[in-house]
């Protein structure tokens, strides 16, 4: 099912800090393109802030007496910056791709390890680029850029888990509706089968899947073995 409440749930989980890096990147791209989503996310972040502020004084955990002094000492003599986070490895900046909106490109450059966008043809009219977002622990999400030629239809497929698709340029439609740039479409459930078709401008999107897609038509099921999407 495509469930509009799922989108709210995802925005809230971003606000609370519960998303894995590739999911968080997808949501960040969504709000960068979509001011309405950005406002909703800010609202959820305000709820998180309120939860901290509402904490009654007797419930608050006192910090160590020297905590403030330690902070001021660090501010006054900054220690060499440690590199604890997975994304800290130096790398060449990712090569720009003109079709990708600048705000999304900036997020991809800042968070993915790829150095360039190298499109790979999956079938006629369908190209994809796998993106890797460093994570502190193993993560089964697959993040990809996907490009469909105008009017191109993908074969009917289902997913083992959740599929999130952010339209970057152009649009697509399936039996649930039509989607354009800035829309984040979340499909979930093994019973959900769709065959998206690109609009007349084609469709450039960022997709995140939790499990490989499975084609449902018998004659192309053998693709399931090697089109691990």
């Amino acid at each position: 099912m495509i469930d509009p409440m799922l989108l709210e749930t995802i925005l809230m989980h971003y606000a609370a800090g519960h998303l894995r890096p590739s999911e968080a990147l997808l949501v960040a791209c969504h709000v960068a393109l979509n001011p309405a989503a950005r406002r909703r996310l800010e609202a959820y972040e305000a709820i998180g802030a309120k939860m901290i502020c509402d904490c009654a004084e007797e419930d608050a955990a006192p910090v160590a007496l020297d905590c403030f002094d330690k902070i001021m000492a660090r501010i006054e003599s900054p220690a060499p910056v440690a590199a604890p986070v997975a994304a800290a490895a130096p790398r060449a900046p990712m090569q720009r791709d003109a079709a990708i909106p600048p705000s999304v490109m900036a997020l991809l450059c800042g968070n993915c390890t790829e150095r360039s966008i190298r499109w790979q043809k999956l079938q006629s009219g369908v190209e994809a680029v796998s993106l890797h977002v460093p994570a502190g622990s193993p993560c089964r999400h697959r993040l990809r850029l996907l490009r469909l030629a105008p009017h191109q239809q993908t074969p009917a497929h289902r997913h083992g888990g959740r599929e999130m698709t952010l339209v970057l340029q152009g649009g697509f439609s399936d039996h649930t509706g039509s989607y354009g740039a800035g829309d984040l479409v979340i499909a979930e459930g093994a019973a959900f089968v769709h065959a998206p078709r690109a609009s007349a401008e084609g469709c450039l999107c960022l997709t995140l899947t939790e499990a490989p897609l499975r084609f449902v038509q018998t004659r192309i099921r053998f693709f399931n073995f090697f089109w691990r999407f």
Partner: peptide, 22 residues
């Protein structure tokens, strides 16, 4: 988690552009 959260407001001007739209 020893991983970096994807921050929306980075110092990148492209992102601030999106924010200042509204």
């Amino acid at each position: 988690r020893r991983e970096k959260y994807v921050e929306i407001d980075s110092d990148n001007p492209a992102l601030h552009l999106a924010a200042s739209d509204a």
